[in-house]
């Protein structure tokens, strides 16, 4: 799966994009965020406050119980501030 990080989540993680093999036990967005948070202190810092973390799977907003698959493009970002 491809993980994309944006805005201040990207700067905390230190990467805009990561290609990772999905562990079998990671089946939904909530489990994915828990697994990613354990990858590094930067990841943990980025994902510390889940209330300000938005997730899109294959370019569509999803909730934390949405399933994730190995071929997915999963974007993780803070609340948007365009317009």
């Amino acid at each position: 799966m491809k993980i994309l990080w944006f805005a201040w989540l990207r700067t905390r993680v230190g990467a805009a994009e990561e290609t990772l093999a999905k562990p079998a036990e990671v089946t939904d967005v909530a489990a994915l965020l828990d697994w990613l948070a354990a990858r590094s202190p930067g990841h943990a810092e980025a994902l510390k406050n889940r209330a300000v973390v938005r997730v899109a799977v294959n370019q569509t907003y999803v909730k934390s119980d949405h399933p994730v698959a190995d071929g997915d493009e999963i974007a993780i970002f803070p609340p948007v501030t365009g317009g």
């Binding site: 944006f6 805005a7 201040w8 300000v52 899109a56 907003y61 974007a75 970002f77 803070p78 609340p79 948007v80 501030t81 365009g82 317009g83």
Partner: peptide, 26 residues
């Protein structure tokens, strides 16, 4: 404009005297 502000994936990084600051959602 109201809907795109809360949905379209854009993020503003402002240049302030204290350095670059990510704009917080309102």
């Amino acid at each position: 404009i109201d809907w795109l502000k809360t949905r379209a994936p854009f993020w503003k990084l402002e240049e302030t005297d204290a350095g670059p600051q990510w704009v917080a959602a309102k």
